[in-house]
Simulated assay, not measured.
Amino acid sequence: MSERSPSPPALERFFTYRLNTLAKLNDMATHALYTAELGLGLSEARTLSSIGSFPQLTVNQLAFEANLDKGQASRAAQSLVDKGLVQKVASPLDGRSVFLALTPKGKTLWRKVMVLVEQRNDELTRCLSDEEYDQLLDMFARMLAQAKAGQQTGRT
């Protein structure tokens, strides 16, 4: 009788795989929604929503908050500057650094983006009860805290 080595678990069993798949499917649906409703690409809409939600962002901070690489964040921010939706404000502490801020026109569009963000959130979580939704948010908060702590100590 020969011994078989155990077969590896199916990739679909892993939380991280499912999380990445969900994120990808959400990105595709969200991109289509932003393009159809606002004429913005996913990077631009993420950039706009982040700048409006987190005060005094630098491009590096924007990249993290918008889940973009630095180059994407820089290009999206510049595109929004060119459209008159975002302005660059010099840092009072460091003349080489700039913060990104919404213009009045950008604030108006930001509110529309946030309505769509809420709509997508509701569509994705519709299958959960209120209690399950609260539990999910709690679990994600704990996982995010753990991931951030791992980043700070060099462990991921």
Rank of each mutant, 00 (worst) to 15 (best):
S79H: 02
G39P: 00
Y17A: 03
D130S: 14
R142P: 07
P55A: 04
P92V: 08
Q119S: 08
A147W: 14
P6D: 13
S79Q: 02
T21C: 09
L85G: 02
R13T: 14
V117H: 07
L48W: 01
Y34W: 06
M139P: 09
T108S: 11
Q56M: 10
V86R: 01
S5W: 12
A32S: 12
L62K: 02
A73I: 00
M139H: 15
A36Q: 10
L124C: 11
Q151S: 11
Y17H: 07
M28K: 11
D82F: 05
P9W: 09
R46I: 00
G106R: 05
Q87E: 11
K112H: 07
A149P: 07
L85T: 01
S7Y: 13
Q152S: 09
F99R: 05
M1F: 08
L109N: 04
F15V: 07
F15P: 07
P92Y: 09
N67K: 13
T58H: 08
S91H: 07
R155S: 11
E37G: 03
E131N: 14
S74Y: 12
G106Y: 04
V59T: 10
P92I: 08
P55T: 03
N60G: 12
S97T: 15
Q61A: 10
L22G: 09
L68W: 03
A145Q: 11
A147E: 13
K24P: 03
F64W: 13
A45I: 01
R75C: 03
R120C: 06
D94F: 12
V81M: 04
G41S: 01
L137Y: 13
S2H: 15
G52I: 01
E37W: 04
R13N: 13
D94Y: 11
N67M: 08
